[in-house]
């Protein structure tokens, strides 16, 4: 146990010295400051506007688009779900767009998860956690110390999990700080709605849950955390397979983007739902964004990610502990 802590300390030191975490925090800060500023602009403009009319106009526009049949099948689903949610907010007299600090913090895991920002940051942290040792030749020393290889890999995985967790936490804190500069800070207990479901062409409202915003946020963060842990585990395998850091980061990004493209280009090929990338935006699915394929329930996505994570970690350990280390 003590030995494992020493190994984790080593990995932490290396990760920090490589400045990976600094890069991650800088990216988060830059993006969140910009988004926070844009929210401030919306807030400033909203004083002059009637949000109800705005929302009604948007719904009308979206329905028009659907009628013209311009949208692809998966996009149409998204639009229908969105119309349903807007209608729901109209009916309940809630302005969904009104920016404040709690909403900003609440939205972060959804947006950063579904737009692949958080997976990208995990890639930066983890893609070269093993391959860099290989590329820099330090594996020859690391693996000739009196420590079994599985312990070294486990220390790397735990360190990666730790920093992925820290990334999400720092994301929340930075979102809070960035929003606090520009937006009103009250609203943690206002109702927040999630669980919208799309059935056929209409949005089912019977599954919608009403929770105080802070609890709703905790659930969203929890789901996004789970998805990041799974993604970090998958990233470890690529880092083990590839000798060069560029190859492993490249493959990770390609699979993220490729998975997204796949769901948009060929939504009819339903085998795509078994690809881990489609299950990553858990927080979004929790809120009510329809998953790209039928039959992707929350339970399905959580199980799928677990299967991928366990499978890839098992392969990573098998490869890492058995392979010959050549120059």
């Amino acid at each position: 146990m003590l030995a494992m802590l020493a190994l984790i300390q080593n990995e932490t030191l290396k990760l920090l010295r490589r400045r990976r975490f600094v890069i991650v925090i800088s990216i988060l800060t830059a993006i969140l400051l910009i988004v926070s500023y844009s929210q401030y602009r919306i807030l400033r403009d909203s004083a002059k506007r009637n949000w109800r009319a705005d929302l009604q106009e948007r719904i009308a526009r979206a329905e028009n688009m659907l009628r013209r049949g311009r949208a692809s099948a998966s996009w149409a689903r998204s639009i229908r779900a969105e119309i349903g949610r807007w209608q729901f907010y109209l009916d309940h007299d809630i302005d969904p767009q009104k920016p404040n600090v709690p909403r900003f913090v609440r939205t972060f895991p959804n947006v950063a998860g579904s737009l692949l920002l958080l997976p990208l940051l995990v890639s930066i942290l983890g893609s070269d956690i093993v391959s860099a040792e290989n590329a820099e030749g330090t594996d020859k020393l690391l693996l000739t110390r009196p420590v079994r290889r599985w312990k070294i890999l486990l220390a790397k995985l735990i360190t990666l999990w730790m920093f992925a967790t820290l990334t999400l936490l720092c994301g929340a804190i930075i979102a809070f700080l960035a929003a606090s500069v520009a937006l009103p800070s009250h609203g943690w207990t206002e109702p927040s709605f999630s669980g919208f479901q799309l059935a056929n062409a209409t949005v089912r409202l019977d599954a919608v849950r009403e929770l105080p915003l802070w609890r709703d946020a905790l659930i969203a963060y929890g789901l996004e955390w789970y998805s990041m842990m799974a993604f970090a585990s998958i990233a470890l395998l690529l880092s083990v397979i590839f000798k060069s850091s560029a190859a492993s980061i490249g493959t990770m990004l390609a699979s993220l983007i490729g998975g997204t493209i796949l769901t948009h280009i060929s939504p009819d090929w339903t085998a795509g739902k078994y690809f881990f990338v489609t299950a990553l935006p858990l927080a979004d699915y929790y809120t009510g964004e329809p998953p790209p394929y039928d039959g992707m329930s929350m339970m399905f996505c959580i199980t799928l990610l677990a299967v991928w994570a366990i499978g890839t970690v098992a392969i990573a350990f098998a490869l890492f502990t058995r392979r010959d280390v050549f120059g």
Partner: peptide, 28 residues
């Protein structure tokens, strides 16, 4: 055993002391 295999590759982004501390920790 103590060894150097091929080239003495150590962590270039760390100081000499950090490198030694890194490997010392693995030995206790």
């Amino acid at each position: 055993v103590g060894c150097i295999v091929e080239t003495p590759d150590l962590y270039r982004f760390m100081t000499g002391r950090e490198n030694l501390a890194h490997f010392a920790r693995m030995l206790g």
